[in-house]
Design a protein around this nucleic acid. Structure first.
Length: 569
RNA sequence: CGGGACGUGGCUCAGCUUGGUAGAGCGCUCGGUUCGGGACCGAGAGGUCGCUGGUUCAAAUCCAGUCGUCCCGACCA
């Protein structure tokens, strides 16, 4: 016999006003609906409602992982420093890694991710290619000492993550494991009710070559992405796209006086050309100390992640440094540039022969400059940030811009960790080889926040059935007499049919109950009022659409349970 | 870590400029009237004004330091 839960006993303290600390919808509403509370910056406690939703998301993940043959395990959150020293990340990971020392003065980290632990776990046990492939996963709290935790569950320091690691004998095998996991991730997003897109991504701290992020589309998202009708999409950090440019005016490398502000917009206006006919110059000092002048299409920005790949931890040149290399802020250009300066240009400009660039003299530009004739481009690199209107690299149509919340990411690691940590198996030809690995993460708590971000209104959260803390709330407007009797009977009948029900048995006024119900956002409300009950009906309100229907009491449990169960996916 | 702001009953905030009895609304407790979209009346409980030090006869208020929190930037599920 299944039970229903009484609101009067539910630990879900709702807030009438927006908490001062919360800005984002998901943060605000999760706090107001009594689902989470802050324990410290970036550290949140999950109250019963949030925990119920999280367990549902986890259940979906477990089903999809089982379906592709991944096995669930659990490793310690605390990891001995030696493992991280072996992989090299003890030094490379930086301040985000929380380090601690035990009473014997031994160093540990709290795992922000667990490549090392999993490699260590399998390396002495998986010895033969015959045992492969193997994919292991866990669902566990992770800790990353973020510079700036924010937005509640969106970027906490401690967060719930599902992390999986695949071990294959061959690169082809790794690709297969990766594709399986990626497909499972798409299903997981879909089943959790998220509108999400797989996008080409940069692989960041985790490393490896190929990586895809699943982005839940939301204006509040921290990531910028571009996407195409043909289904191709990429994080702007990683997007390699087609950029349309125009030739500048003239062809003879002439100096031209430009008494306007030193910006591309002003230059374009003064010259009567479009911004894309100009060339933007950006100067920096690469990690190795080399001064670099980057040339970009005038209407595009230098992408910092791409620049990091090209130049390491670079610095933007200050005026002092510019002066040293004869560069003039606002009027920089490659023509007659100091020979110590390495000139690089965005690959998109490779075929352009007439460049409008700065003359390295305030108030002057050069038009019709031609690479190879008037200046040298030392290297052509992908440096520009993709933006709306650039061409899709697959089909060539113009891209659209959007923002997204990165809920999960899959990586092809290759042998990065297995090699560093000496994790090998015996191949069929009798040769020891490092494992081909993939790793796959889902931000479980972030997924919850993303659902709220995508699904709410002025009144509160609108839970999709699949992740709702409860599926139905019964709202009796009277907690005694025939209204209460009918309502509690309905709650019992729904519970017996396997529906998750909460009944608002508080002696509150109707308005309070309605507002809380909308705030907590359970998919269906069954409103029992005196008039209806006398007439043998109750009102079923769908939270998402606001639609109300009067349903006969004796049919209500069947009607609603069928509907709810059909929507579970 | 750089820039900005804020710390006053459980929550949202006023008071601080110009030092002198710690306030309001909501919430909570008790009594009554209400009862289909955050009711009303009456009576209560509840605060070392983040912390430390300084100035002063006197500090929530002025000064210094410190801790915490939030927002904007560079990192990431």
């Amino acid at each position: 016999m299944k039970h229903y839960v009484k609101m009067s006993k539910l630990y879900a303290p709702t807030l009438k006003e927006d908490p001062a600390e919360a800005e984002l919808a998901s943060h605000r509403l999760l706090l107001r609906a009594g689902m989470i509370r802050k324990t410290a910056a970036g550290l949140y406690s999950y109250l019963p409602l949030a925990w119920r939703s999280l367990r549902k998301i986890e259940a979906v993940i477990r089903e999809e992982m089982e379906a592709i043959g991944a096995q669930e395990v659990q490793v310690p959150m605390v990891v001995p420093a030696e493992l991280w020293q072996e992989s090299g990340r003890w030094d490379a990971y930086g301040a985000e890694l929380l380090r601690l020392r035990d009473r014997h003065e031994r160093d540990f980290v709290i795992g922000p991710t667990h490549e090392e632990t999993f490699v260590d776990l399998i390396k002495n046990e998986l010895r033969s290619y015959r045992q492969l492939p193997v994919t292991l996963y866990q669902i566990q709290d992770k800790f990353r000492d973020e510079m700036r935790p924010r937005f509640g569950l969106m970027r906490g320091r401690e967060f719930i993550m599902k992390d999986a690691y695949s071990f294959d004998a061959t690169v082809e095998g790794m690709h297969e494991s990766y594709e399986q996991e990626k497909a499972a991730y798409a299903r997981i997003c879909e089943r959790c009710g998220l509108r999400a897109l797989p996008v080409v991504a940069d692989s960041g701290q985790i490393g490896g070559d190929t990586s895809v992020e699943f982005m839940a589309l939301a204006d509040a998202g921290e990531a910028e992405l571009v996407w195409c009708d043909c289904d191709w999409a990429a994080d702007v950090e990683a997007a390699q796209v087609g950029i349309a440019w125009e030739e500048g005016p003239g062809t003879d490398c002439e100096r031209v006086e430009t008494p306007c502000e030193g910006t591309i917009a002003a230059l374009a206006a003064f010259m009567g050309v479009s911004e894309r006919a100009c060339r933007k110059s950006f100067s920096l000092i690469a990690e190795d100390g080399t001064p670099v002048l980057c040339l970009l299409p005038g209407d595009h920005e230098l992408n910092e992640v791409k620049a990091e790949h090209a130049f390491g931890h670079y610095e933007v040149m200050d005026e002092e440094q510019m002066k040293e290399y004869g560069l003039v802020k606002g009027y920089m250009g490659p023509v007659g540039c100091d020979e110590r300066v390495r000139v690089v240009a965005d690959v998109s400009l490779r075929d352009s022969t007439s460049w409008l660039v700065g003359a390295n003299e305030a108030g002057w530009h050069i038009m019709g400059a031609r690479p190879g004739r008037d200046f040298t481009v030392d290297e052509w690199l992908d440096l520009a940030s993709a933006k709306e209107g650039d061409a899709c690299p697959v089909c060539g149509r113009p891209l659209k811009a959007a923002r997204g919340i990165e809920v999960s990411q899959v990586f092809q690691l290759g042998t990065k960790y297995s090699e560093a940590m000496g994790a090998t198996f015996m191949d069929e030809d009798g040769v020891e080889r490092p494992f081909q690995m993939g790793c796959y993460g889902i931000g479980v708590s972030r997924t919850l926040a993303a659902v709220v971000e995508q699904s709410h209104d002025e009144q509160g959260i609108i839970w999709p059935v699949c992740v709702a803390p409860f599926e139905v709330e019964v709202v009796p407007l009277d907690v005694k007499g025939e209204v209460w009797e009918a309502a509690s009977r309905l709650a019992g009948e729904l519970a017996e049919r396997g529906v998750e029900v909460v009944i608002d048995d508080r002696t509150e006024r109707p308005g309070v109950k309605f507002n809380d119900a909308d705030l907590m956002g359970f998919p269906y409300q069954v409103i029992c009022g005196k008039r209806g009950i006398k007439g043998g009906v109750a009102e079923v309100k769908e939270r998402a659409s606001g639609e109300r229907a009067e349903v006969a009491l004796e049919q209500l449990a069947d009607y609603l349970s069928e509907r709810v169960i059909a929507e579970r996916r």
